[in-house]
Each structure stands twice: as structure tokens, then as C-alpha cells.
Design a protein around this nucleic acid. Structure first.
Lengths: 219, 219, 219, 219
DNA sequence: AATGAATGAGAGTTCATTCAT
DNA sequence: TATGAATGAACTCTCATTCAT
């Protein structure tokens, strides 16, 4: 199974039947926000968030430095936006590719694979998340909400597996935390320290091990 | 099982028969180096290495800023020293606490627990590792050697388990990579995003899941 | 004979038919560059370039220290700009005031006087030239070219004097080097160690001595 | 004529018949002062005085940095000592090599040659003199006295030449200032900007020009 | 006397942010 | 809205000098 991660938000060009000035301006504004975010994402592939300067972002996004502040309150808010956009996409894809799966085993498989897709698309994710100054900004609440949403989606999958007698019995919350931590943790570490190749045999071995570990009886 | 991580390098007291000035000065100097390293470790609990200033370190270690430069060439050299000291300790402890175990299952359990002990002692480890400028410094070669050493130790444990018919068959290298990534990854992620409590039930569930996944037949 | 040294580069006012924003900004920018250069020149009257700090320059030019870096890459680049501007002016004036003279004796007189004018206007010239880190910057090539140009101008004067049977016979290159070294050297030393008064009798005595020394027969 | 500039002050080793502790200690102290001065002179061949650090001097002279302050009040005092030692030697040599000459023309020749010898031995002289902070230190008075002494020596030579009807008539002070400025100035400039080769034909041409310029009638 | 250690003061430079147009 | 310009605050690192032994 291979996903292609598409940007679900970006509005590039779209015809609108009705000439509503206000809406068009709004849309253009959003487009410019997006291009700044994209520039930032590019730069995050190259260096630390802390070491990226507003000049870098301005240069890459073809805006004047001062203009960036018309779209984002400050550097940190920009980072949060970058991050939450990715989480939104991730949540949507979990719904589409995993929750829709009738078979809980397959759903879990897909979920772990999905995390891999993301790490390939945004390899700087763990690095940036690791150093993110999560506490200081209120927009972060939205980010936390997205984390919770994701957790609920995984929990739903697991519950279905337990109800169906396929997964082992365990406190649902504990089970969910464990699966997410194991999945995301493995993916982060493996791709950072060993290989980001989606075909690496370690990945399949990890998935099998986890599946075997959480299913009742033999697979 | 609980480990207590001791500093394996620090020279606190040493007997010396004769008042050899030179040697005493040398030791005092080392003590001061240590206290700077310790101040840095403390600060790493609180913020990014990049965001820690030499003023911070000076303040915390009760030296004047300029004095730090008598002990470390620059900020990066200081970080490398901090980091490699920890890796040395980790390697030593793996040998002592895991490799010495006759039972492979227990050895693997101990290893994952050990990673937890470290994350509690040095919670900033993953964060710092994630942003470390690994390429630019030659001392880094030593770190890589330590990583390899660690891998060999884990491989030895796994091989014993396979030879003894306890662990599933799989390419040794793949198996080792998988175990390390799963273990370290889970530990990093769980303690960063969820809880660093050693008693969290998720930890036991993770360990059990992995053990069940890699052992033949029923547990 | 008295010269008034005018700044040949500075753009103070310029007519421009149409309100071209871009051009105006460009000009304003240049004006600000000039005022930083001028502040630096002032300070060079008071102390070594090495001992002048960016804070000094900022203070004197009424900019914030950080602003200076919008106009010059660093302290050295600023010095080079200061320096090459002066050399350009000097070359231009030699052409105007000396080469244009029909009488070689008068031309040489004027040249030595000209060096005096410069030393009065930029007394720090020799001092700065003496400590300038000439090797490290590529713009320095331009300076060397100017030095060569000046030498050619003086050589032309001397050759005319030799052809006309007025100056003694001697290798043209040797003669030129001697005249420049004697002239500039005397001027530098005398004004630094004794007096920078243009009316000092030593100056006339020096000029007479040199003229007598290089002319055939009696003057 | 070629001089060899010898260090006239340095006491290296000397046997003393009588065991006067005090005097020996004094001598040893002086020896150490000398070796610091010598280290500084070496370094001045390599870089600006301002850019030479006390660490450099300590390293080169094989003292601990703090020890230097036992011999010199501060960096500037050290420089003044370096300088005045050279001037002392110069004054002595003028006496020996020039003032002793019966022929005033030959004496002037020797003097200019002597300046060349010095510039070869201490090429950094003009550079350092150019940037020296002459005003702030009282030891500088001694330096000025030496300058005056030198001037008197040259004046004596010139006066003899005038009395003997060999040199042109002119105010003695003006004449002396002119000769010193022309001589030292030429030497400084020529050796800095063109060549420090003692055999360069420009040197002989300069000397001849000056001699011709200041002598009555034909040479 | 000699020196290892310590340091206040300051250097040049950078950068997120704001101002003025 | 867009942006060139301006800047305060902070950074790492250096150095002449002093202290304590």
C-alpha cells in the first residue's frame, strides 16, 4: 500500500462564479500564507528551525522580510502553522486510509506505513518537534487538539479489534498510547538513524512483530 | 530491575602519596571541566543547546563567561564532550546489565529498561542528538564508533536467543536494527510526548508486545 | 599654488525628470553610504582604524551599529571603500594639476605640493596605508592599479624633462621610483613628525633641493 | 659602507669577580626584560602591535603571561621600551659612523645609509611608529629626548658642512629638519612600497640628488 | 619571583522585529 | 498591502590585566 500525500489545503487557482471581492482577497491572502509555509518547509529540510532566519524565509518565498509579518505574528507562530497543517493532513489520511479499513490488523498496518510516508515527506518533523517551544504559545492548543484527534482515531481502530476478539485485552488508553509511541517512535528513530527507505526489511519485521504482539493466538 | 547511572569519568578524590603540584593542578582543572559539563547538562534539561548561551553556562557553573573558554575551545566542543561522556556510560552499562544476562529474553527486557533509565537521567538526549551538527567535528568519529559498539552488543544478545531457538529466525542485522529502533524510538517518543514515569503500564505492555513478537511459539 | 580637494564621487543632488522611485531610493542609499564613509574618515583623524569600533562609527554617523552592516559587509570592506575613494581623487588631481603643466620643473613642484595637500586633508593616510591588510581582499587589486597609474603619470613628467634636456640622465624607472619615494616619503614624515603647515620653510627647501639635484647644470 | 647593527644593551652572561647578590639579581632581571623585548620585536615582524596579544608575547618569550607584568607595567610601556632601545642604538651609531667622519658629505651619505640598515633590521619601525599612541604615556618623554638628541647630531654634521663652505646656506634648524625628513621619509617609503634591497639604484640616486642639492657649486 | 586561573569590559556581528512610507 | 530601512538586544568570543598562591 502506498499513499501519496497531497496538500489538502492549498488553493492555487480556482475560478469562482461570483465576483466577490472580499472572498477573492481572502483567498489570495491564504495563497500567500501557503507559499511562506512552503518556503519554510523547504528550509527545514536544510537546517534547524532556530538557525533559519527570517531573511532566509523571505528570500525563499520571494517576499520582503517585513511582509512575512503581515501573515504571521512571529517566527514561532509560523512554525506552529507549518506543524498543524501537517497534522491536519495526517489526521485526514488516517481517516481515509486506516479507519475505513474493516480489518483492524490491516488498519494498524496501514497506520504504521502512513507514518513512514510522512517521515519521508517531512524528514525534519521529529527534529523540529523535538525542539519545539511548545509551552509559550496559545495557538499550540490547536496543535494539542489535533494530537488528541489522532489518538481517538487510533483508539477507534484498536477498540474495534478488541471488540472483534482479534487484539489482546488491555486498557484502551494504554493500548493506544503504546501503539502510537511504538509506531511513531520506531519510524522516527529508524529513518533518522538508519534508513528512510520504505522497502527496508526492518519495517516489515517491525510491523509483523507488533501485530503478532498485539493479536490473540496465532496470526 | 533498577539501575543507578553513575558518572564513570569524574575524578572526585584520589589518593596520592606525595604532594605533586603538577598532578594536583591537573586534577583540579579536570574537576572544573566537570563542573562546567554538569552545568551544561542541567541547562539541557531546560532548553535547546542552541538557545543556551555561554552566559547561561557561566552563570550556572559559577564561572565568568571568559573562564569557560579556558576549558573548552568553544561551545560546540563543549557539547561534544557532554555527549560523548554519556554515550560511554551507556555502552558500559549495556555490557554490565544486559550482555551479562544468560536469558536472552531477560537481556532484551533489561536493555529496553536501560534506555528508559537513560531517558530519565538525560531527557534532553534525543533532542540534542536530533539537532547535533554531527558532520563538522572530527571527534564525532568516536561517537559513531560507540554507536557501532552498542549495536554489536545487542546483536550478540539476539544471536544467542536465535541459537537457543527462543527468538524467531530473521537476518541478524535486520533483527538488531529493528530492536534498537523499536526500543529507543518507543522510549524517546513515549517519554517525550506522554510520560517519563518508569511505572507507566505502557512500558510493560510495549516490552511484552515486542517479546511476544520476537519469540517463537507461545509465551 | 593651492588645490582644493573635492570629493569626486559623492552625489549630492541630481536632477531627474521623472519620479522614478527606484532611482531615488538608490541615490538615498548612496548618500547614506557616503555619510558612513565620512564618519569613518573623521574618526581616522583621531585614532587607528583598528582602535575605531563599530560603535564609534555608528555614533558618529548617527546610525545604529546594526545599520552599518546594511551598507558595508564588514569593517574591512568599509575601510577599503574609504581608501580607494581617496586614491581615485588623487589620481585625478595629478592628471589635472601636474601632467597638464608644460614645464617639467613646475610639474614636479606641483606634484610634491599636491602630496602635501592630501596629507593635510587626510593626515591618517600614511598611517592607514601602513597597517592596511592589503593581501586579504580582492578589491585591493584596484588599488594597485591606481598606484601603477600614478607612477605612469609621474614617469611621463620626468621623461618630458629628460627629453628636453632639463633633467639629468638616468633610468626612467629608477628616476620615477626615486622621485615618488622622496616626495611622498618626505611629505609623510615631515607632516607626521614635524609640522603639517603648508608654509613651513622646510617644504620649499626640500623641493628646491630635489629640483637642484635632478636638473642639469645650474638652476 | 655597511654597518652591522649590534644590540648594545643585552647582557647575556658575564662573570663577576665579586658575589654581589643584588647586582646579579638586577642583571638577571635585565636579561629577562631583554628577552621579552626581543620576543616582541620578532612578533612585530609578523603583525601589528595592536594585533599582538600578551599571550603571543608570553608564548614567544617562554614566560607565563602574568610574568610579563613583572617586567613591564603594561603593553604600551613594553612598546615604548622596544622603541627607545632602538633609538638608543641608532643614536650611538650615528655618533660612531657619521659624526666621526671628517667629510660632511660622507657623513650625510653614511647617515642615510644608516637609516637603511635600520629599516632592514626593523622593517616594522615606520608601521609601528605610525600608529603609536604617543600622547598617553609619560615614558614617552624619554623617547622625545632621544629624537632631540638625534636631531642635534645631524645638526652638528650640517653645521660643520656649512662652516666649511661645502653646504648651502640655510637656517640650521630648517636644514636639519629637511634632511631628516627627506632621509627617513625616503627610506621608509621606498622600503615599504618598493624594495628593501640595499643595492637598489634608487638609493644611490636619492643620496646623490640630495647631496647635489645641498652642496654649493658643482660636485 | 613566577604563574595558573579568573575576569570585566568590550569587540564585531547577527537577527527578529518594528517603523515609515 | 508591501517593503526598504532601522534597530535593540543578544550572541560568541577575545584580551589586557589582576588575583592568589
Amino acid at each position: 500500500m502506498t499513499f501519496t500525500i497531497r496538500n489538502g489545503n492549498k488553493i492555487n487557482k480556482q475560478e469562482y462564479g461570483d465576483g466577490e471581492m472580499r472572498a477573492r482577497l481572502e483567498r489570495e491572502r491564504e495563497t500567500r500564507r501557503e507559499s511562506i509555509i512552503e518556503a519554510t518547509e523547504q528550509l527545514l529540510n536544510e537546517k534547524t528551525f532556530e538557525s533559519i532566519t527570517m531573511d532566509d524565509i523571505a528570500m525563499r518565498s520571494d517576499f520582503a522580510k517585513a511582509s512575512i509579518y503581515q501573515y504571521f505574528k512571529n517566527k514561532e507562530e509560523l512554525l506552529i502553522k507549518v506543524f498543524s497543517r501537517i497534522l491536519e493532513i495526517k489526521c485526514r489520511l488516517i481517516k481515509e486510509k486506516c479507519l475505513s479499513q474493516a480489518d483492524p490488523v490491516q488498519a494498524i498496518r496501514n497506520y504504521i506505513r502512513l507514518e513512514f510516508e510522512f517521515i519521508r515527506r517531512y524528514p525534519w518533523g521529529p527534529r523540529v518537534a523535538a525542539t519545539f517551544p511548545f509551552i509559550d504559545y496559545q495557538e499550540v492548543n490547536y496543535l494539542f487538539a489535533l494530537y488528541e484527534q489522532k489518538k481517538k482515531l487510533i483508539a477507534a481502530i484498536i477498540q474495534r479489534g478488541q471488540t472483534g476478539g482479534i487484539f489482546v485485552k488491555a486498557d484502551l488508553d494504554v493500548f493506544t498510547n503504546m501503539i502510537i509511541s511504538a509506531g511513531v517512535g520506531f519510524v522516527n528513530y529508524f529513518s533518522t538513524h538508519m534508513s528512510s527507505d520504505l522497502q527496508s526489511p526492518e519495517i516489515e519485521m517491525f510491523i509483523s512483530t507488533i501485530i503478532k504482539g498485539i493479536t490473540k493466538g496465532e496470526q
